Computed example of a mutant assay.
Amino acid sequence: MSDPTSLPYRPCAGIMLLNRDGKVFVGQRIDAMVEAWQMPQGGIDDGEDAEIAALRELGEETGIAPAHVELIAVAAEELYYDLPEDLVGKVWKGKWRGQRQRWFLFRFLGDDADVNIATAHPEFKAWDWIAPETLPDVIVPFKQQLYREVLAAFAPHLAR
């Protein structure tokens, strides 16, 4: 594989979804060999608005309709992560070295019955609501720093 640092970052939208109890939605990835949980996230299509992409990805991954969420905040800056070297060239057809993500904090206005991870192209095999501060403990190691940065970006809105 050539130098991974020569590859661009994949543009992506990430969603931190808070329920009424201040807990965050996480899904357990269907394709992971380890117990990997993450917040909903996905690619931004060419010319697509990042917030529109976030809402689309939320629907595609969780079945949650835009009517069941309200925007609380947007991270001031894009956040980045690099793939581990052994994954560069294997995921996303080898086109990206990692992701540059625009993060959105939404409040979930619905009920658990409004969540349906059995979507057309399922990404999660299980889901849960967890305390925000535990996010870095459940994500794959190479995304832990990213999740700490997401928590820092939304800290003013997470205080109880």
Rank of each mutant, 00 (worst) to 15 (best):
K95C: 09
D49Q: 06
Q99T: 09
E78S: 12
T119R: 07
P66H: 11
M16L: 14
Q99I: 12
T62V: 05
W127I: 04
L135S: 03
D114K: 02
R10G: 07
P8S: 06
T5N: 13
I15W: 01
L7A: 00
V115M: 06
A76I: 06
D114I: 08
R10V: 10
Q28V: 07
G94A: 08
F25M: 12
E77V: 15
V115F: 08
D49M: 02
F104N: 05
M33R: 13
R148V: 00
P136N: 08
I139Y: 05
A75D: 13
H68P: 00
F124Y: 15
H121A: 15
D111V: 07
R100C: 12
A76E: 13
G89A: 09
N116L: 01
N19S: 04
V26T: 10
D31E: 14
F154P: 01
G47I: 06
M16V: 06
E51Y: 06
K90P: 00
D49H: 09
H157C: 03
T134G: 00
L58Y: 02
F108I: 05
E57Q: 12
G42E: 11
K143G: 12
D82A: 09
T134K: 03
Q28I: 05
R160H: 11
P84F: 15
E60Y: 04
L87Y: 13
R148L: 06
A53I: 10
K143A: 12
W129L: 08
G110C: 02
F104S: 11
L83Y: 15
D137K: 08
Q145A: 12
P66A: 07
F104R: 09
K23Y: 10
K93H: 13
L83N: 09
G47Q: 01
E35G: 01
R10F: 06
A76Y: 05
G27D: 13
S6A: 14
E77D: 15
Y9M: 10
